[in-house]
Nucleic acid binder design. Structure first.
Lengths: 158, 158
DNA sequence: TATTGTTATACTCTATAACTATA
DNA sequence: TATAGTTATAGAGTATAACAATA
């Protein structure tokens, strides 16, 4: 029976440990496609905020507008999203998903659900519901915006 | 009622989101002390594996031996740990905590417990037990070694 | 003057390979 | 030949500040 250091049973540590693992697994799964978890996240947010400006999206995701440039460049280079000049404010772009972007989002969603199932394999249906419910409540209580990674960096990952 | 993109309710994403938050919060808490979460982790592992070599510790933590050099240098420079030549193998060191290292570990443990309590503030005692139990079982089922971060990088955050 | 998007730059981190000394 | 520890280095990622165009 493994014991380990005291932090091994800390909820904060367990969340970090499992969250990092989930992230690495998903990233590993997307690597052969030349994609990163952040692509899935960006597509989801873009689908939910179609037509918003880079600045607005950057604010919503908690990143600097200069970081958003690279994120949108990336999506645009892959043909997943496009910039259109905002007629009302010629400094700004409005952001839009392409058909390919919407389609890819659907495929990545299926992969993500598969990963979720694998991660929760050890729990029965009731336990899964309880866990997800507890996590969602914690995230909300801690002030986390739904679907917003507290550290969406254009790179890394970790 | 916030909705968000589909991944907002994915268990993998929730774990990543909350794990990242917990990590950032703890890091923020340690910053004024000039410390990083990895210091707490290293002290804990060292306390549990006193006398092992850098190589052995690197293997246990899943990092390269060249990365372990910097981690141990760091602890040694702070007077928290020390290298002693292994009499049985003059290539190797054995690693040991100092009194200051043990003392600091205790103080960081108290801080970590405070952070845990704050993170779980929204749950009652029974829910907390259920959550920690579920997380510990998942970590074990996924093959995670107790207290070992899947990505102990000497830096970042991440 | 303030804001949108962009670029440039300096900084930090990280992973690899190459070296030494022992075995 | 293989292993413990170290060093050097190149690559990746990140955060800041400064800029041009428009408001």
């Amino acid at each position: 029976m493994p014991e380990g250091p005291p932090h091994a049973r800390s909820p904060s540590f367990l969340l970090t440990q499992l969250g990092t693992l989930a992230h690495l697994r998903f990233a590993e799964r997307l690597r052969p496609l030349g994609l990163h978890p952040r692509h899935y996240g960006m597509l989801g947010h873009l689908a939910a905020a179609e037509g918003s400006s880079q600045q607005a999206l950057a604010d919503a995701l908690g990143v600097h507008r200069s970081a958003m440039v690279a994120l949108v460049d990336d999506l645009e280079n892959r043909g997943l999203a496009e910039r259109r000049r905002d007629p009302a404010d010629r400094r700004a772009y409005t952001l839009h998903l392409t058909g390919a972007g919407r389609e890819l989002h659907g495929r990545l969603k299926a992969i993500a659900e598969h990963e979720d199932a694998q991660l929760l394999a050890g729990l029965d249906a009731g336990e899964r519901r309880g866990l997800v419910d507890a996590l969602a409540r914690l995230a909300s209580a801690q002030g986390l915006a739904p679907g917003v990674h507290p550290r969406l960096d254009p790179g890394r990952a970790d």
